[in-house]
Amino acid sequence: MTELSLEKLKAEDVKEISKALTIIENDPIEAKKIVGALDEKDYCVIGLTGSPGSGKSTLTDRLASLFSLKEKIGIIAVDPSSPFTGGAFLGDRIRMKRTSRNDNVYIRSMASRGKLGGLSPSIYNAVELLGRCGFKKVFVETVGAGQSETDIANLADIVLLVLAPGLGDEIQMLKAGIMEIGDIYVVNKMDIEGASRLKSRIEAVLDFSNHRKDVILTDGIKGTNLEELARLIEKELQFLKESGKIDEKRKKRKRFNKLNTVFQELKELPDEAIDRLVEELKKLTGGR
């Protein structure tokens, strides 16, 4: 493995974890090796998605801070890469000042790299690495646009859909069916006019589609209801564990990790090899 110390990684050394994440981001084959060299551990993934500017980073900061009292918390904050230059402006740390000083919290910014509006394919291994390095909860923040909602649902055990009044795109969210993706609905910026109305609207939609899910009002700046939100997350996790659903989520995460890695490996193959593979695939799928 390229200049990486497995001993240090196992000892959960921050510098080594940081270096490992860089390799994971750049090289899917090495990524598989690094993660595979570490023991599997029990951890959970909490995704936050929702409209740009709704308060995802602010809430992640608060939640990580609360949970960090009893366990190590990892945060991966995803922002989009420019499809034209490949560059990215990663600004979520601006709203994570509370936890950036906390030794029990590790924050990493990540660009979406090529996947328009989605998550970088390396996110699965990045999250898994943190899980295997002793982080008990890994938060993944992603902008709620395009592909990222379905991506986050495949990755996370629990998805928080964060909305706020006055952003003007709640109606689209409701229409676009992204309501199905959330496990907990957070109406942030409860200090702003229209928050309770938005909450009732969401509840009405959820009732209509027979989803029994929690909807909670929060103020990310003052911290109002944040302890209650943390409690809802623990309650949901408890439910997932007791019902055995957590295992399904983990299987799903592993499956998508594998699919992503395979796809990365396929991209390196010459055309003839792809053609041969397509033939083989036909046998597996019965010619479809």
Binding site: T85, G87, A88, L90, G91, R93, K97, S109
Partner: peptide, 20 residues
């Protein structure tokens, strides 16, 4: 400018301590 030159730029905002 660095972003437009294809780099990944992490901006941490105002009032950071040297340790931060």
């Amino acid at each position: 400018a660095l972003r437009d030159a294809g780099m990944e730029v992490i901006y941490t905002g105002l009032r950071q301590s040297p340790e931060d």
